[in-house]
Write a protein that binds this DNA or RNA. Sequence first.
DNA 1: TGGTTCCTTCCGACCGGACGGTAGCATTAC
DNA 2: GTAATGCTACCGTCCGGTCGGAAGGAACCA
Lengths: 212, 212
Amino acid sequence: MARATSTRSESSRRRQRWPDGYDPENTRKSLITSALELFEQRGFDRTSVQEIAERATLTKGAFYHHFESKDDLLRHIQEEYLEAQLAAIQRIESGSDDPKVRVAELIRFSLTSVAEYRAHVTIFYQERRNLTADLFAEVTRKRGLVESAFAGMIQDGIARGVFRSDVDPRIATFGLVGMCAWAYQWLNLDGPLSVDEVARQFSAMVLEGLYA
Amino acid sequence: MARATSTRSESSRRRQRWPDGYDPENTRKSLITSALELFEQRGFDRTSVQEIAERATLTKGAFYHHFESKDDLLRHIQEEYLEAQLAAIQRIESGSDDPKVRVAELIRFSLTSVAEYRAHVTIFYQERRNLTADLFAEVTRKRGLVESAFAGMIQDGIARGVFRSDVDPRIATFGLVGMCAWAYQWLNLDGPLSVDEVARQFSAMVLEGLYA
DNA sequence: TGGTTCCTTCCGACCGGACGGTAGCATTAC
DNA sequence: GTAATGCTACCGTCCGGTCGGAAGGAACCA
């Protein structure tokens, strides 16, 4: 019974023109931004629709004009992030096919996306439970694609003899994904180390090991 | 203003004797077990006190006899897990002082505790936000001790020349902690690989690297 | 042995407030 | 007129927490 995405503004194909550069789409965006900040800080359940609207200097009425429900907004945020992830994966897969370059790129990309989409990532991992069952399944499926990309690259490296064969590609993948995903808990853009530098160190650790 | 732990049953020093092996402490435990299961599945906010009580075939009244509040129960669960963590850290620190053995032990221990305390771990990471500010600070402090243990061991390894010096110990720590912590999302006790085997592979990857 | 009192454990009815969502209306542009 | 946008007022529900009391053992006294 997967009903199509249909908020009132999404279904409005014939758009009205507004004067003075005003665009209702900005209203929508400001609601999303407001929600991103609040969900990240307080969590989905502890944030009321009222608060989201107020932070965007609007009212609940406006919110429900742009979104079907609170869940609908969450879904939108999750999908926004997943689309960015999948797009990046494809970019990497169309680049170098050297396993070690690919793994390093994947680490770098993962950390970069954590830095760029910090709120999205936090919400993505913490609030998946709040999605409806079928939506959760869909999100998990897409998330699986990202992990498969990791696993495929490692598997490929093993097959070509670049990586050691006594490590299960799935386990290595979980380790890599975990290392990178966890960064949303600590990665500090204002810290002394750049994202690229952190990525370099992660790559060094995983590829060459900690031994001197 | 750190008020001492004081639910009614904890403060009752002179215990009543009950016939037939009945012990009200079991009631308390069954409430905790019930909450662990529900919090893990649905999250703290989506679980009502009513549901917790009902799952233990009790009522809200009984719940509020054993716990001060819903938050009090969450605090109890968090502390239960942290105590176990800190105890294990001390055990490791009193063992071998070889950096590579210690790191391997720490990985093994982290994964084991994820397997053993699965619900606790899930709740710990997902529901920290729901603690009061000062309690959150306390939990974060204790959690910091665990991470310091990791960092100290790596630092020590670098100082002794066992580990490479171009990797920041803090970054390496975050990587290691992330790898292990993330396991709560996928580690499967019924899967083909034992926890020890997963730990071995993680250690191999981090210490020796993926290269063949 | 029976009576009284106290304490622990648990029940069930209830309260106040917050929250998601709805309905109707005003405004503005086409 | 019609459609999009946004506001105000309102509704029903659920939830954390409280309160008074019932059941029954323990402890003391006679």
